[in-house]
């Protein structure tokens, strides 16, 4: 659950009983802020949520003070790297370091609260960050770069429809045997999955 607008924090089911007032939510790294409340389920990637909000605040930064101008830029860079599957574990420490600094040092409210989504997701959904970095896996299957198209050999009847529909020729195989997707060539357009009559094609994340 994301609360307080783009600079708010993220809470989980275990916070369901927390009172919705200024002081209570603050204790958990969130704010009442705009009063907005976004409820998300397991189909939303929390790293992507952090990236999305950071791209918003980074765009809104006026550029006057150094922590916010330079800090939000670097936080966004790191988050982008992670959702692209290029993150390193040390990125998490860097992210934490910059976020804490910006929160304490920025000039105005925008900068001071910009790191909140990062700080709260880092705290509550750290395992999702680690999965993105180490396992190159997005459990919500939303991070484009981490999605892999696969063909389930058991279900594949070897009809070859997918190979014909693939715009980049990433699918090869012999008729009546299981087809295969070359992950290097695949651009994740989803066409093959749409076209397979046997639902043999799935997304692995």
């Amino acid at each position: 659950m994301q609360i307080g607008g783009p600079s708010g924090g993220c809470l989980t089911t275990e916070h369901l009983d927390v009172g919705l007032d200024f002081d209570s939510v603050k204790k958990y790294g969130a704010i009442v802020g705009s009063g907005g409340l976004v409820v998300m389920d397991e189909h939303t990637c929390m790293v992507e949520v952090a990236r999305f909000f950071m791209s918003f605040t980074q765009r809104e930064s006026c550029g006057k003070c150094v922590p916010c101008r330079e800090g939000t830029k670097r936080m966004l860079e790191i988050l982008e790297r992670i959702v692209e599957g290029n993150g390193k574990l040390s990125d998490l420490d860097e992210l934490q370091e910059i976020a804490e600094m910006v929160k304490s040092m920025a000039l105005c409210g925008l900068g001071k609260s910009a790191p909140l989504p990062v700080l709260s997701t880092l705290k509550t959904f750290r395992d999702e960050y680690v999965e993105h970095i180490v396992d190159k896996k997005c459990r919500a299957k939303t991070c484009q770069a981490l999605r892999k198209y696969r063909i389930n050999e058991e279900l594949c009847k070897g009809c070859g429809k997918c190979a014909k529909s693939c715009p980049v020729g990433a699918i090869t195989g012999k008729r009546r045997e299981s087809y295969h997707i070359d992950p290097e060539l695949c651009i994740k357009c989803d066409t093959c999955r749409d076209n397979c009559a046997f639902e043999a094609i799935y997304v692995e994340a």
Partner: peptide, 17 residues
């Protein structure tokens, strides 16, 4: 401790750009 760390990071961020 933390202020010292933050100041250093600010200068590092300035240098980075």
């Amino acid at each position: 401790g933390r202020i010292k760390k933050y100041r250093r990071l600010i200068v590092e961020l300035l240098l980075a750009a």
